[in-house]
């Protein structure tokens, strides 16, 4: 799997917020073998350099950092935050979030497309946090995105894949764009389901960070993702209405006359 030409082995991307401590976060990353973590700049900054200590801890984890624009409600805010991220983490990667509604944290897809275009033209490699809407996804690709991150369910809701049909259509429509389910997952089976559908990767935060044992949960998700991916490659069956006997019935000994 590669994102913007960067080859990755692990198909699990982790958020860095809300862990019991940075030390637990480091252990969870190790347990999950994740290679990419996402860091929020907006909330932890306020002004330049204010979050330095936490960011140094994240940098010291030895994994690739995907900065994000969580908490941005406008195109301008998101673009400014992306620029700050590029300087701070020395990366052109940006997980673009433009939030449209504070209660559901639903993406503002109109602002998202606009910000994605501005940032792509400016040399950023954009990972847009979007809904499963096919047309929006099309516009994002048109704006320059080469990775798409549709939600499974609202951020932190632990509901799993709300619209399996929509996510499947997206996969079918974009066979060559890496697709990552971002947000809304609660348990490892949700992640396995996404991978079985052919999604390239999964991005998680709360489901691991707020588990009773984040390190064990990180490992559980890593195993589920591996299982789901392996199952996808092994070409699983399609559901059918009738039983399909695994032993032939023709030629069975008939009773009676």
């Amino acid at each position: 799997m590669s994102f913007y030409g960067v080859e990755l082995t692990s198909r699990l991307l982790l958020g860095t917020a809300r862990y019991p401590s940075p030390a637990v976060l480091a252990e969870a990353i190790e347990a999950s073998k994740t290679e990419v973590v996402t860091v929020s700049l907006r909330r932890e900054s306020g002004s330049e350099g204010a979050g330095q200590s936490f960011w140094s801890l994240v940098r010291a984890l030895g994994v690739r950092v995907l900065p994000n624009t969580a908490g941005c409600y406008s195109v301008k805010e998101a673009v400014t935050t992306a620029h700050m991220a590029r300087e701070l983490f020395d990366t052109t990667w940006i997980k673009l979030e433009v939030i449209g509604e504070p209660d559901t944290l639903q993406p503002d897809v109109f602002g998202l497309v606009e910000a994605a275009r501005i940032l792509s033209e400016d040399g950023f490699e954009v990972f847009p946090y979007t809904t499963e809407d096919l047309v929006v996804a099309d516009r994002l690709v048109e704006a320059g995105c080469r990775v798409l991150m549709p939600w499974g369910a609202p951020i932190g809701s632990a509901r799993g894949l709300n619209n399996v049909y929509g996510l499947k259509s997206l996969r079918a429509h974009f066979p060559n764009i890496p697709l990552v389910v971002d947000a809304g997952l609660g348990v490892p089976s949700h992640a396995a389901a996404a991978m079985e559908m052919g999604y390239d990767a999964v991005l998680l935060n709360t489901a691991i960070a707020e588990a009773g044992d984040p390190v064990a949960m990180a490992r559980a998700f890593a195993l589920a993702i591996e299982a789901g991916r392996t199952a996808y490659l092994a070409q699983p069956l399609e559901p059918r209405d009738m039983a399909a006997p695994s032993t032939p019935v023709i030629g069975k000994a008939a009773l009676g006359d």
């Binding site: 909330r43 932890e44 900054s45 306020g46 002004s47 204010a50 979050g51 330095q52 200590s53 936490f54």
Partner: peptide, 11 residues
């Protein structure tokens, strides 16, 4: 609880 070392007044 903000991972920030800015000392300024409450936002």
């Amino acid at each position: 609880m903000v991972e920030s070392e800015q000392r300024g007044p409450a936002t």
